[in-house]
């Protein structure tokens, strides 16, 4: 049985694509046949984060419009087995994605035996974002500990609960997960940043993971290599934990406490 998983947030720049790349890679490394689809038609970027930008020939719109077969458009990841990327098109035509067309692509991917279909949503609540979440079985709502991001996440949760196929057909609701990104425990400690507890209290969604603010994320995207592959980095490990939890494992949260600084460190430390 394949699972359709949407990575969404409402707000832009919070780490949806980074998360889609990391989670899909993690699922594939766990032996699940996984495809990650970029729904940001006109502004595709997942190909860059996944490091496959030079191998894009066909995209999801070509598949929907019958100009290419699914297997021609799917890009197999070179480093991670079981992992495929379906890029977005760079067309400006916003109506290129249709509910019917996306439904057909997802059916075909299910028939190909994919265990996980990860949909990387564009920012906003327009067509691309609505189609990315429409067929979802599970949703990862990505949120920064920042006031506008939390508000948009709440809006997105409302949309998931009312506008998805599951909501419309009266099926069991989409399973929701909260993933907090760019978390800075030292700033939470000084009272400058919303804490994990604050966000859980406000959004009331089960926590999938907390990804610390990390240099590793920029370095990973510079290199076109999903950050989860950097096993020695904090962000990489935090994503590995999140994937394990997604697959039902229980793991304690890491990287949510401040590193203890000595007295001298506090006096002379720079950050």
């Amino acid at each position: 049985m394949s699972k359709v998983l949407v990575v969404t947030s409402g707000k832009g720049g919070v780490g949806k694509t980074t998360t889609s790349a990391a989670i899909s890679s993690g699922l594939a490394m766990a032996g699940k046949k996984t495809v990650v689809i970029d729904f940001d038609v006109g502004l595709r970027n997942l190909d860059l984060i996944m490091g496959v930008e030079r191998r894009v020939v066909y995209d999801i719109v070509n598949v929907i419009q019958g100009e290419a077969g699914l297997n021609q458009a799917l890009i197999r990841h070179k480093e991670v087995d079981n992992l495929y990327v379906l890029p977005a098109s760079q067309t400006k035509d916003k109506d290129a994605l249709t509910e019917e067309g996306v439904g057909k692509v997802l059916d075909d991917l299910r028939a190909e035996g994919f265990d996980y279909i990860v949909c990387d949503s564009p920012a906003g609540i327009e067509r691309g974002a609505q189609l990315a979440m429409y067929y979802a079985d599970e949703a990862i709502v990505v949120s920064n500990p920042e006031i506008s991001s939390v508000r948009d996440s709440d809006r997105m949760l409302g949309i998931l609960a009312s506008k998805s196929r599951r909501a419309k057909d009266g099926e069991t609701a989409i399973k929701e997960h909260l993933l907090i990104t760019r978390y800075a425990p030292d700033r939470v400690g000084t009272g400058e940043m919303l804490s994990v507890e604050d966000m859980l209290e406000i959004l009331a969604v089960p926590l999938l993971g907390v990804i610390p603010e990390s240099n590793a994320v920029l370095q990973a995207s510079n290199a076109g290599r999903p950050v989860i592959l950097d096993e020695n980095t904090d962000a990489g490990q935090a994503y590995q934990d999140a994937v394990a939890r997604l697959l039902g494992e229980e793991r304690p949260m890491r990287f949510i406490e401040t590193e203890k600084k000595g007295f001298l460190g506090r006096l002379f430390g720079r950050s």
Binding site: E146, I147, R151, V188, G191, D198, E201, I202
Partner: peptide, 8 residues
């Protein structure tokens, strides 16, 4: 952060 939480 306390202000942020209350406003939210």
């Amino acid at each position: 952060a306390k202000m942020a939480k209350e406003r939210l």
